[in-house]
Amino acid sequence: MYCLGCYKKTGKPLCIKCSKTLFEGAKVPFELDFDAPKANNAELQNNTKKMSIPGVQLKYSLHLKGDKLALTPKNGQFILKPIPPIRYLDAIEDVPENEHLTMQIAAQVFKMDTAHNGIIYFRDKEPAYITKRFDVKADGSKYLQEDFAQLLARTEDTDGPDYKFEGSYEAIGRFIKKNVAAYQPELEKLFKIIVFN
C-alpha cells in the first residue's frame, strides 16, 4: 500500500507525516460517508452554493469534526474536488489523481511550497482530490490574502472585465523588485513557479 498523500510505501492509507500535515494526526477514514456528486444528490448540491473559492472545477467545502470529514456550506478547512461531471472527455476519471500527482511533483521534486493534499474516496469508491486550505487558521478565522491583481491595483474599471488574466509576469517581477527588500530569491521563486506551470 502506498500513502495517499506522498506516495511512500506504508501499511496505512496515510503515512505518519501526511497524517500530521493533512489532518493534524486525526485518524480520518479514507472513505467519505456520502457518494460522489450526481444530479440527484441534493446534500452535495446544497453545499456548493455558498463557496467563494474561484475556479471552474466543481468543489466542496469540508470541515474536520473529530476524526470525520463533514460537508459544510462555509468555514471549511478542506477543499474536495471530485471527478468533473463532464464524463465524455478522455481519461476524465484521472483528474483527481492528476492534480494530486502534479502537486506532489511540485512539492517533492521541485521543492515548492504547496497546500497539503491527498486522495480520498467517496462511499461509492469514486476518487476525489482533497487539499487543506492554507488561508484558514486553526480557530477557523482566515488569513488575509491578496493576489497580484490587487497588489498591482488592477480592477475591472481600470483594466476591463478580464483584468485578472491579462497582466504580465514582467509587471509582477517589477512589482516584486520595487517592493521587496530581498527581491532576488523571490524573483527566482516566481520564475520557478512560472516554468513549472
Rank of each mutant, 00 (worst) to 15 (best):
D147I: 01
A182D: 13
R123V: 08
D157H: 12
R133S: 06
E170V: 03
I120Q: 05
F175R: 04
G167A: 09
Y183M: 02
Q145L: 07
E156P: 08
T155P: 03
N179R: 11
K178F: 02
Q184E: 15
A181N: 12
V180L: 04
I119A: 12
A182I: 02
E126P: 00
F175S: 07
A153E: 13
Q150G: 08
T158H: 14
G140H: 02
S141R: 01
F148D: 02
F122G: 00
I172A: 12
T155S: 14
D135E: 05
A171K: 13
F134L: 08
K125N: 10
E156Q: 13
P161G: 13
K142F: 15
A181Q: 15
I172V: 15
L144T: 00
A138W: 13
P127S: 09
I120E: 04
D139T: 01
L151W: 05
I130P: 01
H116P: 06
Y143N: 06
D139K: 00
F165Y: 15
E156R: 10
K132G: 00
Q145N: 04
T131G: 11
T114K: 05
A149N: 08
A171Q: 11
N179P: 11
E126V: 13
Y169G: 14
T114M: 09
E156Y: 10
M112R: 03
T114D: 00
E156N: 08
I120D: 04
P127D: 07
A181E: 14
K142H: 14
P161Q: 14
Y121D: 06
A115T: 15
A138D: 08
I119C: 12
K125A: 10
D157G: 14
Y121A: 02
T131W: 03
R174T: 14
K177N: 06
G118D: 04
A138T: 07
M112N: 08
E170Y: 15
A181K: 15
Q145D: 03
A153H: 14
S141G: 09
N117L: 07
A181Y: 09
Y143K: 07
R174S: 10
A115I: 13
G140P: 00
A182E: 12
D139E: 01
S168I: 02
P127R: 03
K177D: 07
I130V: 10
Q145F: 00
A115G: 04
G160R: 07
D139Y: 00
A149K: 06
E126Q: 15
G167T: 03
F148V: 06
K125Q: 11
L144C: 02
A115R: 05
F175W: 14
D139R: 00
Q184S: 11
